[in-house]
Computed example of a mutant assay.
Amino acid sequence: MMEQPLSGWMTHSEYLEFSEIKIGRLMTYARHLTNVLNNAMTAADCFFDPDPDCPERANDDDGFPGEEIVKTYNSSTNRYKLLTAWALPDPLPEYIVDRAVTCTTGEEVPWTGIWYPDTGLERHSLTFAIKGRRMQPAFRILKTKDELKAEGAYLPSAKTVAVATASHPFLPSVRQQESSPDLLAKAGQPCPRAGVWQTQDVNATEHSYGLGEPMANLGSAYGLTVWRWHKES
């Protein structure tokens, strides 16, 4: 698209808006999605089967180490003012660590979502993991980008090391669930609140789930079954 003579049928201002704003926004989305999914898709393989030509790459956090996710969010929203879909809820939701469910590095991930590492978050990050993939390691930050810049490094990346650990689902708290008008859970996720749940299909099906019990996949017409909390058992 960008190789076409766009300036031949656009005014200069239209061309600048298209190339620098609209295309730039799409490229920003694509780059951030790559970073978000990278560790979930490749970090476990790199950790257990490092590239013999570059084994040190197994220690690189190619996601958003430490506070980089906050800086990236602020930078993107400040640059693209129309990214209203990225607006954070106010107040922020309350979440808890569900230690009843554990997945260690290398094990098959039972639920797609955010996981909390047993290392804690001091110089570590939350983990996004994908159901069916191997759980990736946590990454400990040895030196942040700011620390490396202070030492004179030019365009540095955070220096990290991969650490095998156990992780637990990071879920909305009971108080947050009760205040939410629509508590939803996807098939395969651990049940975030005990009670009667209802599918989102036209012909809704009800089923009782206990806390932490995997939500069933009933072959929804929409693909993956999505459940909505309905009432107490």
Rank of each mutant, 00 (worst) to 15 (best):
E68V: 01
W111I: 05
M1R: 02
L6Y: 13
R175W: 05
A162T: 01
L6G: 09
N38Y: 08
E94T: 14
S19T: 08
Q198K: 15
V226Y: 14
A166T: 09
G212T: 07
A58K: 11
E3R: 12
A166Y: 04
F47C: 00
T105D: 00
S13W: 10
H230N: 12
P50A: 00
G219I: 04
D90Y: 11
Y95P: 08
A164S: 09
M1E: 13
P137T: 01
T199R: 04
L88K: 08
G106N: 05
N59T: 02
T104K: 11
G195C: 09
S13K: 15
G8F: 07
K143H: 14
T104H: 10
P117A: 07
L148E: 07
W229Y: 14
S220K: 10
D51I: 00
S19N: 15
N217G: 02
A194W: 02
D60G: 01
W197Q: 08
G113E: 04
V163G: 00
R133V: 01
L33K: 14
E178Q: 14
N38W: 08
Y73G: 00
P55N: 06
I114K: 02
A100I: 10
R31G: 11
P5H: 07
T165V: 03
D201N: 00
K143R: 12
Q200V: 13
E178W: 06
L218D: 04
W227T: 04
W86Y: 10
S19F: 14
E213G: 04
P137G: 05
D53V: 09
D49T: 11
P192S: 06
L26E: 13
T72D: 11
P181L: 15
T165F: 02
L37G: 04
L26P: 05
F48Q: 08
V226K: 13
A85N: 11
Q136M: 03
Y95A: 06
P89W: 03
P110I: 12
P214M: 08
T77R: 13
P172F: 09
R133C: 03
A166M: 00
A100P: 05
D98I: 06
R133E: 04
Y209H: 01
V226N: 14
H230C: 15
G66P: 07
K186L: 15
A129M: 02
Q4N: 13
T84P: 10
K22I: 15
A164C: 04
P214I: 01
A43V: 00
P50G: 03
N39V: 03
R228H: 02
G219D: 02
P93R: 12
A166S: 11
